[in-house]
Amino acid sequence: MFLRPGMVVWVAGIILTSLSTIVVALRYYCRYFLMGTVGATDHLMLTALLITWGNTVINYYQDQTSSSFRPSQFRIPEKRPKIAAALQGTLLTWYMYRITYIIGLCFVKLSILFFYRAIASHITFRRMVYATITFISLYTFAATIANIFQCQNPSDSWSTSAYFSQFDGPGPSKTPKPKVRCNNPVQLWVFSAAVNLFTDVVILLLPIPTLLGLRVPMNKRLALVGIFSVGIMAIVASCVRMWVMALWSESPANSAHFGADLLLWGQVETNSGIISASVPFLRMIFRGREKEPSEKNRGISPPRRPVDTNNKPLEISSMAFFSGPDVGPNGSPIWKPFITVPASLSSSSRDSAALEAQHPHQTV
């Protein structure tokens, strides 16, 4: 049975996002019923999950619209009216995806950083957390605005007449070419992928020096480092997506060939971040099952937690995370008009290669 690459993307998206939903639901259960506290870090992760579900729906419509035509039909004026509706749907869904993908990753990272903020009392660590939050927020805002205004008039981004005009020859045309002003977005997307990878690494490494400096037994320090290092899953996915992005941006043929892979690894990256950042909170489920029988067998009540009479911020060296409740374009430098559209997610590389030979400015 043959599955279109685009179908693989949204099916995998449904599976991964469903798994993320289960993990986030268990996270809320542990935080509310077992830890007794739900904070901004949890709500930010829930927002990221909802945006990821939105991306999955967008992936579905990207596949449905792009599978209704082949890139070779763009050069046949008689075919254009028949595929215009599907093409516009493809243009529009990709326009939406570029924006929501960046925002979704932002909320995942902010959730992790807000958790760091809740347990940070060392002034240097706290300042670094605030600086990272500020950088990611400003970068996401700037990248979102840049994607929204890829074309001076945003609606030109999904204009079929503007897109078809790229495939008309230099001679006279039956229909006048629309005047659009659009920027080359490839540099922005490659830069965004690099920044995403960089911030993933920063977030992973940020708490390590503080954790290694705790005055606790080495086994507990290493356990804490292991808990915080589960985010390496997201970094691996981000590295693979960065590699696919590099291949995707080399040529129009590569853009058509690797478009589905780019979407797929985007799903893996986002869901890996959600799951890896939420799994550490699920330890309370197993912790409670292990401790309760032993305490009953001994006939003693759980020890009472000391009260902080000075109302000082929680020290990470107090092992609060273990204790629970207090865890707070190709050959030419000018691309115009440039409208970005992915080739059909189910199209063959032969169609794409034929386009590249005659029209080097078409990109996906």
Rank of each mutant, 00 (worst) to 15 (best):
V225H: 04
W243Y: 15
V279C: 04
S276I: 05
M245Q: 11
P293H: 02
S278V: 00
S301V: 00
W335D: 14
A223L: 06
E290T: 03
R298I: 10
D261I: 01
A277R: 00
I316H: 06
V327G: 12
N254K: 11
P329K: 13
R287V: 07
A234P: 11
S238P: 15
L214Y: 07
I300T: 13
G226E: 08
A260T: 00
A277M: 00
V327S: 13
G331D: 10
G226S: 15
M245E: 06
L262T: 06
P293M: 01
V236S: 07
R298G: 01
M319G: 04
I227N: 15
S294E: 10
A253D: 06
F228R: 05
L247Y: 06
L211N: 09
S276V: 02
L314N: 05
P209G: 04
G213D: 07
L211K: 03
F322S: 07
M218A: 08
S272H: 05
L247H: 06
S255H: 02
I300W: 03
A277V: 00
V244K: 09
S294R: 14
G273F: 04
S323D: 09
A320N: 05
V236P: 10
W248T: 02
P325Q: 03
L262Y: 14
V216A: 14
N330G: 06
A234C: 10
G226I: 06
P333E: 09
Q267R: 03
S272Q: 01
G213K: 09
K291S: 10
F281W: 09
V268F: 14
N310K: 13
Q267A: 10
G226P: 12
G266V: 01
P333S: 11
L211R: 07
L247R: 11
P302D: 04
G324H: 01
F258K: 10
L314G: 05
N297R: 14
I274H: 04
N297I: 11
L314M: 08
A234S: 14
L282D: 10
F228S: 07
P303R: 09
G231V: 04
D326N: 15
